[in-house]
Design a protein around this nucleic acid. Structure first.
Lengths: 145, 145
DNA sequence: ATCATTGCAAACTGTTTGCATCAAG
DNA sequence: CTTGATGCAAACAGTTTGCAATGAT
């Protein structure tokens, strides 16, 4: 079946059973450019065959996250989204079509020039080690409209 | 009553009625360092007098956001939070005590050096205009522990 | 007096859980 | 055969809405 391509091995090497639901989810996330919300995912999978019941979808996503195959994050809009790209990266969001693309930023913490809002002086008493960055604008497809 | 300090004028000049619930909410957010979630807010207000019923709290927060007095955002943890600091700013979060402090970053978009994750080349076909940045680490109080 | 706000209860939405059936190893 | 996954239905939590009572102007 076309659903089993590639994902089967990934699931097996993560030590979890390569079931229909999980493979379909992994396949979709691995091939899609976007980082779909649960609802978008449900809708998209309905288009590729039998719909996946809500309970199964949630359970499978939970399992895949636990297995370390997916990352779950919440966008600034409050939507929970899933991402099969495990490398550290950031997101670029189109405010028109809501597309979410991955971007890389080298040494973000040292570039940012973080300062105290009131004094304008650099923050030097915190031990910062991580940055989560979301940039917004218009994607190539929407910039013309 | 101690609740009316300052907030009354703010609500009046925003053109909405300075009611008890709204003043208590604004007062709390204006004086608190944190950016409370709905639940934290409800809990904190319960401590300052009569509890505010859920419906009223949600309705009031909605009104205050519409009036432009509050900003609503969703943290990476998925919690909806409110902020009375209207200036454009970013957040610094202590991973130990969860304190959220405001920070400023000048021209974040030009500093970041955003590149395509795969090619490593700069992104030049998007029209980016906004960045939301959350940095994490340990605050001065927790860095010693 | 008028109209917006409050606050209870009921409705709704997204997510989780119990459990019997089904599928993978 | 054994164990884990599925998927229905029911439970749940957070939020929103209908509407009568209340409060602000």
């Amino acid at each position: 079946m076309s659903d089993s391509s590639g994902s089967e091995d990934i699931l097996l090497s993560a030590g979890i059973r390569p079931t229909q639901a999980r493979m379909r989810i992994m396949n979709y996330l691995l091939t899609s450019e976007t980082h779909p919300s649960t609802e978008e995912l449900s809708l998209a999978l309905r288009g590729t065959g039998v719909p996946i019941p809500a309970a199964t979808l949630y359970q499978s996503l939970e399992k895949l996250c636990q297995a370390g195959l997916l990352i779950r994050f919440t966008g600034k809009d409050g939507q929970v989204r899933y991402d099969a790209n495990l490398s550290v990266h950031h997101h670029m969001i189109c405010r028109c079509c809501n597309r979410v693309c991955d971007i890389a930023i080298k040494n973000p913490l040292s570039r940012l020039g973080i300062i105290n809002e009131k004094s304008g002086k650099p923050i030097d008493n915190w031990a910062l080690d991580q940055a989560a960055i979301e940039v917004k604008g218009l994607c190539p497809d929407c910039v013309g409209k």
